[in-house]
Structure formats: C-alpha cells, structure tokens
Design a protein around this nucleic acid. Sequence first.
DNA 1: TCGACGGCGCATGAGC
DNA 2: GCTCATGCGCC
DNA 3: GTCGA
Length: 437
Amino acid sequence: HVLLNFAYYKMSSSDSGHRKGPSAKDNPNYDLCEFLMELSAYERNVTRNTFKSNAYRSAASSLAAYPTRVTGAKEASSIKGIGKRISEKIEEFLSTGKLKKLEKIRTDDTSTALTELTRVSGVGPAKARQLYDAGITNIMELKKRTELLTHHQLIGLKYVEDFEKKIPRAEVQTIERAIRGSLSNMKQQYNMTVCGSYRRGSERSGDVDVLLTYDNVEVERKTVKLEESSSSLTKETNAKNEVAKKRKDISDGSSDEENHNKDNINTKKNRKLKADQKYTTSSPSGSSSDNKSYATNESSSPSANKESASKTNHRAMLQSVVHQLQKDNIVTDQLSLGDTKFMGVCRVPPEECYRRLDIRLLAPEHYYCGILYFTGSDLFNKDMRTQALAAGFTLNEYNIRPMGSTGVPGEPLHVNSELEVFDYIGMKYKQPSERNM
DNA sequence: TCGACGGCGCATGAGC
DNA sequence: GCTCATGCGCC
DNA sequence: GTCGA
C-alpha cells in the first residue's frame, strides 16, 4: 500500500508530526525509510544530484513495501534498489542506532538552510542556493526579502504552513461539492472528476486534482458506482447520455484530421508553429498529411485554423472556469494558468486552511486516458505503460496507440472508458482503489 | 565498465 | 519582439 | 546510488 510521496522530501526534518513518508509509521522498517528519505532530500537540495536522490527514494520505497524488519546488510541488499552502499548504511544504523553521514548533514548550516528554504512551493534546489548565497538561511529571513521571489514563490511563502498539511478526505469532498456547485452556474457545462490519491480512496491528500472536459462524455459507471459523492455526477451523466453520444459521434466523424494533428503534435511544437514551418520538422509519428499541414501557411490551412481556434477556446474556457471559482470565493490565488492547466489555491469556509488546487481541462477524446493517468499512482502508471508496450501499444496521458512493427505509433484508438484502455492491453480492470502500488 | 535514470505544462529570463 | 533553456511541480 | 546491457 505504499506509494511514492514526492512532497515528502520537501518536508523532511521540518514538520510537526503529521508528515507521511513513503512508509506508514507502523511499517517495520519505518526508521530506515526515514533516514533514506533524509539522504534523498540531501542529494536533491544540497548536492543537486537528482539521480542519487531518486536512488535513495526508490530504496526507501522498496524498503517500505518489505513485510518484515530487515536484520542486516545481506538481507537488505537482496531488496531491489538497495545495493552495496545503502546496505552498509542500513547495517551501520542497525548496529549503532545512527548514521555518521546523516549526523554530519544535520549539523551542516548550508544543508539545513537549503532544506528549510525548499519548503516554499516554487523554491527548488537552484533557487534555494541562490537565496542562500544572498545571505538568507531560513523562512523568517526570506519574508524580509520578498523582492527576490517570483509570483509563485510569494504565494508559496504566504501559505508555507498550510501547504504542508494533508487534506482530510471529507474536506476534499467539501471542496469537490463547492466546485461542482460553482461550475453548475456556468453556461458551458463541464464533466468533472477529482483524481489523484483521493480517487484511489486515500484518507488524506496533498492537494486537489480536478479534471474537466467540456463534452458530456459518457462516464464509466462501474467506477463511478464505487466512488463517494458521485451520485450527482452519475445522475447528470445518465440524463445527458443520449445527447452526449450523438454529439460525440458527430465530432468523431467530422474532425478526424484535427484529432490526428492534435494527437501527434506535441503542444510545445504546436505553440511554435512558425518555427516548425520554417524548419519543416516532422512530427514524431509524422504522416504525410501532418507534414502537409505544417508546410501550409497557417492562415490557409483549415486544420491549422481549427487547431489554433480550439487552442484559444481552451484557454478562454479554462480562464472562465477560474474566474467563476474566484467569483464564488473558492479560488483565492493563482500559481499558473495556461491552455490546459491551472495551478492555484482554494479555500472553502469554514475551513481555515488554504489548499493547493490543480485544474486540467481535457479535450473529450483525451478524457479517459487523462483520468487514468492522473489517478495514478505513478508506480501503477509505470507498470501499466510497460504492460501496454508489451502488448504492442503505447500509452500516455492523452491516448493509447497501437505500435506498428516499424516502431511507429499508429492512430490513437477510440476510448470510451477507462476500462477500454485496460481491455486493449489485455489487463484486468483495476478499481482506482486497487491502483495504490 | 559505463550509460540511463520520465515526460510535460507553465513561468521566467537569457540571448538574439 | 521572438525563441529557447532552465527551474519547478506534478502524476 | 543502483541496475543492467
């Protein structure tokens, strides 16, 4: 039941007892996981060696999943992700109760400063080092030097305590209801799914991760049935099912070319259409029609027009969603806002804590792969992508495509539910609650 | 022994 | 003004 | 730091 907690090393050695690492406190190797995570934070924040950091984190994760207390180096090194060096450290910890390397790190001023500063959202290892070089060693001092911070970092500083607190499940539900209520007052109706660990049934979440799509996509009932607070969604969806299906058929039939482009061109390239035209770079899976549309002048290409129109619509849509939520005093701050992703802050009274809120706007044809991906866990996703490859498909957060013998991905497959993705790759369907790997 | 280790959206600033 | 690289957070 | 080609 253990999952990687990326927020974890942001809080290590700092918080007040409610932190949840890669292992619950009842884990037989809890203390060992703790010190491995502390080493992971050190490698990330101080030495800036992400690979070492990840190695420690992955070792901690494996150890947390290990059922019994590790008794020695030999046993430790039999665990995947734990090699010679880490098993030596485990041995040292088991026999002396501490780790020399860690004791030294804990008393090192630079190290403690950098770790403290990275508690602020938007402050990573690089910014922390920069601030430290400017003479700032803790958050109190940082509050006096706000001119050094970006907008994101200012918000992160403002809510640094709140963002370290986990969100109880009941509160996520309250937030979910508030957002549903707010969005129901909009002209454009949205389908909404709260993903992340919440959807997997977790009792506490780090943030609220909302996925929206603007078409009335048929919602997968098997899943919905088992999810709390989904009765309204189910009802609404059923009522609109027929309309939805019809619309969907129409759109699928008429916009093949558009979908084709959308699915094969990554957004970065898309944004730089001009540059691509100049260099006539082909898209990763470039078919002739792709290249054609690239070579064509934007204004004279129907598909390019559609493309850019849909892009701006997305931006406008997401903006108006955020506006609505601000109007209803749900969204309080904004960290970033683009075509498809909003990151910000929300609060629903009487709760006093400010919470991290992410909203993603997905095109209907990307909806199910989207909720699949953003429901995670990340380890589950990794495993599923591997199985997809083995079954001759490539799976990402947008779609699933068959892999031709040439290694070139084919057209995105039509997906009408999460279940269908499992079916394509011959995997038994897993409820969200069964995806906690 | 030696390279891989995830990929993406958004903000920001460097460079032109 | 533009493009590109980098930092960051995210599953 | 660990894994595996």
